[in-house]
């Protein structure tokens, strides 16, 4: 089993959220959507996560993942309409650790509320 760094965020509601920007340095990373008990969330397209290898990047090199109940163009993580969920970012083979304090050493992506459904 890998030993990744796991910053978790808990969001509420069926709103549309956007995850943008850059991620901390890592050889490989994944972002996965779970329900509050750590289970994958059922949805029509069977999409529960993105890996750093399969994301479509914007023309400026940055990336955006849209987390919402309704289908969106680009990197869409469907919430299946559940009220509470967690997004987990796992960094595999990364210099970032619990002892890393300086913000510039671990640039975290921004999470922005875009719209209500």
């Amino acid at each position: 089993m890998p030993a990744p760094t796991i910053p978790a965020s808990r969001w509420k509601g069926a709103a549309t959220w956007s995850w943008t920007g850059i991620t901390p340095p890592a050889r490989f990373w994944t972002v996965t959507l779970y329900d509050p008990d750590g289970r994958l969330v059922p949805n029509g397209i069977g999409r529960h996560a993105f890996t750093s290898q399969e994301l479509v990047r914007r023309s400026d090199g940055r990336l955006e993942i849209v987390v919402s109940p309704r289908a969106r163009p680009g990197n869409w993580l469907p919430t299946g309409g559940i009220e509470r969920y967690q997004l987990v970012l796992r960094l595999y083979d990364t210099p970032v650790g619990v002892a890393t304090r300086a913000g510039r050493e671990r640039p975290m992506p921004a999470i922005i509320r875009k719209a209500c459904p």
């Binding site: 089993m1 996965t32 779970y34 750590g38 289970r39 994958l40 969330v41 949805n43 529960h48 996560a49």
Partner: peptide, 18 residues
Amino acid sequence: LPTSDRTILPFMDPAFAV
């Protein structure tokens, strides 16, 4: 592999075989 129906452990990473 974890699915939305069944996961042996919580918070398994579906990108990885374990």
